[in-house]
């Protein structure tokens, strides 16, 4: 319920979305709602469709069936302005994907300057203040390969934030990091969650999902098999597949 008493529409609505890679159906009639300022975590084994779902949300992948609404706007028709849509949605990838030929500062400034036409001075000021927020202001003029994985991933996050997105999609952003570098990145995501950023995370960090998520979805073979509050999913999963998955992850964490 919003302030004026009317039920507010969810910020993201996914309705019956299916997608195929050739003969392989990777998403099966997925439906999902994400409210503004909420954090939704997608969990599930590799290949369960988490990443593909995220990539469909900013149209890096096309869907064959169903529809997606973001901020009340249907994005799954041919005439949608994908560039305008993507300016509202930040995505961060597992492999950081910083631009290696640009300095950290240039990485952060590029999209605001070119896609939003922010004047150089203003873009630079904004980029530097974002970098100082993550404690990397002295790295502004370094190239990405001089930074650790954790630092690169934090730069990738602020690069997305520099576009002032209304929604952030985080695709297993800690999976490529050494364990000791994970916490810096998670702290930044936690901070974003606290500040009210709407986020959808695909993650293998169960402890973190439990802590920050408003809703957890368990994906299995392209379906959302079960969704609920973190309490419900982690304490009392209904589906045997969910139980099995969580047991396996916990086992792995103990061994790690």
């Amino acid at each position: 319920m919003s302030a004026n008493g009317k039920p507010s529409a969810p910020f993201v609505e996914v309705k019956g979305v299916s997608k195929w890679f050739g003969p392989l159906q990777v998403l099966k009639e997925i439906s999902l709602e994400v409210n503004e300022h909420n954090v939704v975590c997608l969990i599930g084994a590799s290949g369960s469709g988490k990443s593909t779902l995220l990539r469909c949300l900013n149209m890096l992948e096309r869907i064959e069936e169903g529809e997606i609404l973001i901020d009340g706007e249907r994005i799954t028709h041919d005439k949608v302005d994908v560039n305008a849509l993507r300016r509202k949605i930040g995505i961060v990838f597992q492999a950081y994907n910083l631009f290696p030929h640009m300095t950290v500062l240039q990485n952060v400034m590029l999209a605001p300057r070119k896609a939003r036409r922010v004047p150089r001075d203003e873009a630079e000021w904004a980029a530097r203040s974002l970098l100082s927020r993550i404690g990397l202001e002295e790295k502004a003029d370094e190239f990405p390969d001089r930074l650790s994985g954790g630092q690169q991933q934090r730069v990738a996050i602020v690069r997305a934030l520099a576009m002032e997105p209304k929604l952030m999609l985080l695709d297993e952003i800690t999976s490529a990091l050494d364990p000791q570098l994970v916490s810096d990145v998670l702290n930044l995501v936690r901070e974003l969650a606290t500040s009210g950023m709407t986020m959808i995370l695909a993650t293998h960090e169960m402890g973190f999902a439990r802590e920050v998520a408003d809703k957890v979805c368990f994906l299995d073979a392209g379906c959302i098999l079960e969704e609920g509050t973190p309490e419900q999913i982690f304490r009392d999963p209904k589906e045997p597949r969910t139980r099995e998955f969580l047991a396996r992850v916990l086992e792995a964490e103990k061994l790690g």
Binding site: L60, H101, K114
Partner: peptide, 28 residues
């Protein structure tokens, strides 16, 4: 391909992605 995906997902157009991200790396 991930460089292209990163650039496009930031809202850069195809032409901007080529101009600022792909071609500079390719030429080097």
């Amino acid at each position: 391909a991930s460089q292209r995906a990163a650039a496009r997902s930031l809202g850069l157009s195809y032409a901007q992605t080529m101009r600022y991200v792909i071609i500079p790396q390719a030429v080097r």
